[in-house]
């Protein structure tokens, strides 16, 4: 079983390599369409034309685009991720601090969204044909019509301003020291350092942003799961299970739900990818120090080395999460596994 999973994962990642190369080239070319000159923007106002030329040469901006791309790719492979034009720090440093924060946020949002979505889907299925289902249907329609970043603002208004229950700015209470970096994941590091106060502060700061992400995901899961439950409930094997005298409880959890879960798992794979997009503005709004904040700052300042790397990191994350979800799908579905 584990072997099968690893083999599938290996092949998935093998297939992901050309995609990554295509993505990196795409990003590179799009960014070179830029009308403004990033070098000019990073120089002080009094700089001369020679200063500019020198900087352009230093940054490699004077070469042709394919050349620039190959140089960048080569640097990337040799571990040189470049220097931020705006922050004037190695891009690798910026990304390695921001990445664990974004991952913590996405995973919490995903977990929360899946739990609420699956529970809601089951509830809708149980209430099918009645007023309860209609009500849940209307609520889910409404919830889907508000994007994550507006949920973020509404949550701040509700639980940060109107009823101040939860913190809504930053990653932890001001004045707290970042625990010594072992894994880079602050939640883990604070536990390792034995700083429970930091841990709880981190957790509290995670609640609102994670909820904002989860609210956008849950109704989708709910509806897809409900639809597949209804479909599977009409299948022959469910009827046959009933004719064997199994209890409705047993039929739902042993037969209907596992079969209905397959399309939901696919959906989660796609939506988890989209969720990384959702984090961008949510991070901006909560002042959460993750990749989203980083890329928005970089975009505002035309900081190409940062944009390039962060975009690539997002792609790696999406591909990784897709591969992980696909492995789960294959493990759950024997038809694909035993091929």
């Amino acid at each position: 079983m584990l072997l099968v999973a690893l083999r599938i994962l290996f092949f998935r990642l093998l297939v992901a390599v050309p995609t990554l190369i295509a993505v990196s080239a795409l990003v590179f070319v799009i960014l070179r369409l830029l009308p403004a000159d990033p070098a000019a923007m990073s120089l002080p106002p009094g700089a001369t034309a020679e200063d500019l030329a020198r900087l352009r040469a230093a940054l490699g901006l004077d070469r042709s685009i394919p050349e620039q791309y190959l140089i960048w790719l080569g640097d990337l492979l040799s571990g040189d991720f470049g220097i931020s034009i705006y922050f004037r720090r190695p891009v690798a440093d910026l990304v390695s601090t921001a990445l664990p924060n974004t991952l913590e946020l996405v995973l919490s949002g995903l977990l929360l969204g899946v739990i609420v979505g699956v529970a809601g889907g089951l509830l809708m299925f149980r209430a099918r044909g009645g007023r309860g289902e209609e009500a849940l249907d209307v609520v889910s329609s409404a919830m889907m019509s508000i994007p994550e970043f507006l949920w973020a603002l509404l949550l701040i208004l509700a639980f940060g301003v109107a009823v101040p229950l939860l913190p809504f700015i930053g990653r932890m209470a001001p004045g707290m020291m970042t625990p010594p970096g072992v894994t880079g994941f602050l939640l883990l590091d604070s536990l390792i350092a034995g700083r429970l106060d930091v841990f709880f502060s981190l957790l509290l700061h995670l609640v609102l942003p994670a909820v904002a992400l989860a609210i956008a995901l849950a109704p989708l899961i709910m509806r897809v799961l409900r639809a597949s439950l209804v479909e599977v409930a009409g299948d022959d094997f469910v009827t046959q299970a009933r004719l064997r005298g199994l209890s409705e409880q047993r039929i739902l959890f042993a037969h209907t739900l596992p079969n209905a879960a397959l399309p939901t798992i696919s959906l989660i794979g796609v939506q988890a990818g989209f969720m990384f997009g959702g984090t961008v503005l949510v991070e901006v709004i909560f002042g959460y120090p993750g990749l989203g904040n980083l890329i928005v700052d970089a975009v505002r300042n035309h900081d190409l080395p940062v944009i390039q790397l962060v975009a690539l990191v997002y792609c790696v994350l999406v591909l990784a999460i897709n591969a992980a979800v696909e492995v789960i799908y294959l493990l759950v579905n024997p038809r694909l596994r035993t091929h």
Binding site: L31, G273, L281, I307, C315, V318
Partner: peptide, 17 residues
């Protein structure tokens, strides 16, 4: 290839370009 980008990120990059 497109699906490996979160749509918001791709849109941001395009608008930079």
């Amino acid at each position: 290839t497109w699906m490996s980008f979160p749509p918001v990120i791709l849109a941001l990059i395009l608008l930079v370009g």
